[in-house]
Computed example of a mutant assay.
Amino acid sequence: MSRLRRMSPRPRRSYDQYCSAARALDAVGDRWTLLIVRELLAGPRRYTDLHADLPGVSTDVLASRLRDMERDGLATRRRLPPPGAATVYELTARGRGLLPVLEALGAWGADDLTERRPTDAVRAHWFALPLLRALRRAGVEEGLVEVRLAEGHFHLYAGGAAGEGPVYGDGPAPGEPDARLALDADTCAALGRGEPGLVEAVRDGRVVVGGEGPAAKALREAAG
């Protein structure tokens, strides 16, 4: 963390093109930047947590990308009060505005998420954004949804794209969720492709729905 404070930001690199896509890529086109945004959509994160959930990134590159994101107004850094007393990074409104970009990229790349390669790392919460899309397609527009995979648990805030809080979180839901979904990673990947839809996956038993909240009842009723 001290290195983050000592090192000055690197000079901004630019395509030098008067084009909105080029301007956007000036800010987020570097390797790892959008994946850092993906992690920060879960809310404030410590540097060590980011590094743990971005396997393959070096400490120097992560520190550099975070400085760039602060400079470009995508993220901010703050110190938590005691007893936490840790430095955390979080998205600004501008950084949070990248959620639709990440969702579109995920949808575009979903067809490539087929058989897992031996070198592939996986974290349960990496399925959060595809499942948010699947919930919307199933008509679940709001509510707290807990998801249980063999790889771990995470929770989603359906409708979180419209608010200011986290879009998802690692681990079990804080409090009683509106629905609990139990499924496997292959089904998560298939839902990201829309094959099948969430309601169909509930109907054929690939997704087990628990809970008595509105989201759980809506999914069970839609599945018949």
Rank of each mutant, 00 (worst) to 15 (best):
L54M: 08
A189F: 13
A138T: 10
R193K: 10
A138E: 11
R23A: 04
L131Q: 06
R203E: 13
R193F: 00
A150H: 02
G143R: 03
G171D: 13
V209D: 02
P11G: 02
D16L: 10
G160I: 02
W108Y: 14
L66I: 14
A22Y: 09
S58Q: 06
H153N: 14
D111F: 14
A128N: 02
A21T: 01
V88C: 01
I36F: 07
L191F: 03
D120E: 11
G95Q: 06
R133P: 00
P100H: 11
A173T: 01
A107F: 07
R77S: 06
V101K: 12
D60W: 11
A190F: 01
E221N: 02
A86N: 01
A107K: 12
V199C: 04
L132V: 06
R94T: 07
R13I: 05
R65W: 11
R136S: 08
G163E: 00
A158K: 00
P166T: 04
D49L: 12
G139L: 14
T76D: 05
E200V: 07
A75Q: 11
G159L: 15
R78E: 07
R78Y: 05
A93G: 13
G152K: 01
L62E: 12
P166C: 02
T33P: 03
H155A: 12
P214W: 03
M1C: 08
L135K: 04
G224E: 04
A216V: 11
D184K: 10
T48M: 10
V167L: 14
E146T: 04
L132G: 04
R10A: 06
A150R: 07
D170E: 12
D26V: 01
G224H: 05
L198I: 15
S64F: 09
A52C: 03
P196I: 07
R12Q: 08
R116S: 14
P11N: 04
A42M: 00
R31G: 04
R38V: 03
A63T: 15
D112V: 08
P100L: 13
R3D: 07
H153Q: 10
P130I: 09
A107R: 10
R13Y: 06
T48F: 04
W108I: 05
